[in-house]
Design a protein around this nucleic acid. Structure first.
Lengths: 222, 222, 222, 222
DNA sequence: TATGAATGAGATTTCATTCAT
DNA sequence: TATGAATGAAATCTCATTCAT
């Protein structure tokens, strides 16, 4: 049964120990996937015993679900906490992409978990996780687009829902490009980049991508 | 070792047997993921013996790689074979999205394999597969966009590479929405749909999405 | 090491706590067997901490042995305390069977412990427990049979030891029929009973069984 | 799920290998009980790999159930195959006890399994096994008793069902005395025997027990 | 004395792969 | 070439017991 909540024991342990376990779990689940992750190895890496993990969580499923939830909450706050609701659409979108990329660069494991959830064999986690993940982002995007239209800074007649979907699709794909070998190769091929993808390169190309997304919404084409 | 090619014996077996094995393999790898797929079950479903699979392929890795390659080739031809290069950008994009959705509806397992490849733990397959998958699509998209600009039917000053990347991101995300529980939930939340996602509903919404993609490129906003 | 006696601390705790622990232990060991009983679950059910159990007893073995001893003592006093040594054999046997059945109905867990002890894997407890359990009963049965023969109310030439053994075998089997699924099914098949085994049904059939046992000893067949 | 039947694979292996596995399984389950038996150790002792056991049986439950069934069938045929239905009750009972004791001496592990089944924690096996085990014996005993009454060689007015139950209780208890440490101690105490229980001793005492059982049924007390 | 978090040996079961037939 | 029984490494999870608080 998916409890999605650790046992009470987990709340009580030292924060550093807690954090280390969560980080290592996210890293391993990210690197190897759910099925490929070995609880024994996680225990070793996190500096706890196998048994302890089972005092914190009901089982592997429960742990995985918690780590995903935790990671998604971290990514959400990384993006939304620095966001000022009084900004206009363009600035908010700019912020979302930049904060997202910054988060993905610093904590790639959590973005990888997002890909994981969409993976086959993860169907049993999908319902539980997806609703809470996507709901807020979808609502926020649609809201700022509507506001932009009302303010006259966005194209009249814009399809709000589809535009939000589109922007988020690009957002997701960009973040995945930073953490998944497959998406990285894909990005390189589209943008005709050489092997390495340095921080500066990313910055430059991110400007282009954000610009393109904003053009999507602008009333008159540049 | 990734041979990426079946042993010669696989070429010699009856085409129906070959096809059945590939279909069932794609289905199982799709449903359960690479790690979750059991060769014994595949053998049973495909009506061959476990031993035979090992006479056709070097091992599970080799089989998986072949099935992915095969699936990606199928998806490519499903989309590009009916495409007339003399069509303008808009019609070509319209065709790509519709043919892609049609293919995903009929052979969802192959789209799922695409998600699989981007998954963590699949890194060792990524390099080998990604280059050939994405290369052609990227080149074709960039080419038609450039042509559209030259013909004056697309916005002047369009960022060709980024636009191609963007369109493909939307394309991928739409197809994933048809086959992955997570992406399906996400689509429902963005488009504010109820539970079911019937063929007709998809048709309607696909129109909106294609429209949005085309607007992205159009010189003057609708 | 089998100490067979709890640590001194166990004597000092509140009688209600003591009793509750013993009852729950008997119940669990009965339901699940020695190997199947989880000390953590016992602790929870008995309202004490796991640690406490280890301050009362040396370990699981020690606890088990004590619980068995305690249960066997309870069953012995339930049967023998109400027994008047001045009664004749027939009345004493009648009393033993009825008191035994009454005890088994009220405290089935203790009878189950008896079956447990005879079980394989319990060999290391057998010697220690069996001697004290069976010794007294055997001696008492043999004594009343001898007395009955002397008084001329039992068959002359009766094989005293074997008769005692026989009677006790029937006694044990009857009690087991009340508490073990297997023996219950067996009883139903011999007595041609339907599913349920109500208190009244048992009463009726108990009369028949006691009668049969007494006939075994009687000088002239009915 | 309790299949109670081995996978088809098990039927096909070499009889000697089959027999060795069944013998060792009965022995181990007997010595240690169900929970105490380690599949890995069984595999080693039986000279097969752990994996093979799982190709023969669904799991430990399935194996246990099969071994019990097999053992019960062996014990039944050991007793009933040499029995001539034209014999009178006394001779048939004599045969049953002697054949039972002979079987228990040669194949103690199978009698131990019988005790096992009655053990707590084995409830899930009880229904499935008990019916088939006890049904036949019960019917046969009742039938020969009825016949004896009709022939006038048994007491008129005998309680057929209870007598059959009684005789079987004694039978079971005698066999258990040969294989279970607890029942062995009990037997020694009732019959006032010293430590060892040699074949001859058993023979002598078996005579006494059979005699006692027969007296139970006889029309006039000896 | 009481607690319950921590431990890790050990149990069951799975499954990719081999190989004799 | 085809088969499927055999293998054993490896993975998840349990649980008696310890020990710091």
């Amino acid at each position: 049964m998916l409890r999605a909540m650790p046992k009470s024991t987990f709340d009580k342990i030292a924060p550093a120990k807690r954090e280390r376990l969560l980080r290592e779990a996210a890293r391993l689940f990210g690197e190897r996937g759910f099925a490929g992750t070995d609880i024994a190895e996680l225990a070793t890496r996190a500096g706890v015993s196998k048994g302890s993990i089972y005092t914190y969580f009901e089982g592997k499923d429960d742990l995985y679900l918690f780590v995903c939830r935790d990671g998604l909450a971290r990514s959400r706050s990384a993006v939304y906490e620095g966001l000022d609701p009084s900004w206009d659409v363009f600035r908010q979108i700019d912020h979302i992409f930049r904060a997202g990329v910054a988060f993905a660069s610093q904590w790639p494991e959590y973005i990888v978990l997002y890909i994981n959830v969409a993976s086959p064999g993860m169907a049993r986690f999908a319902e539980s996780l997806s609703l809470e993940v996507e709901g807020r982002t979808a609502d926020h995007l649609k809201q700022i687009i509507r506001q932009g239209i009302d303010e006259g800074i966005l194209r009249r007649g814009l399809d709000v829902e589809v535009s939000a979907f589109t922007i988020n699709s690009i957002y997701i794909t960009v973040l995945q490009s930073l953490v998944s070998p497959h998406y990285r190769i894909r990005l390189r091929q589209y943008l005709e980049l050489d092997q390495t993808l340095s921080a500066e390169t990313i910055g430059t190309h991110l400007d282009r991508i954000i610009h393109c997304v904003q053009d999507l919404l602008r009333p008159a084409a540049g």
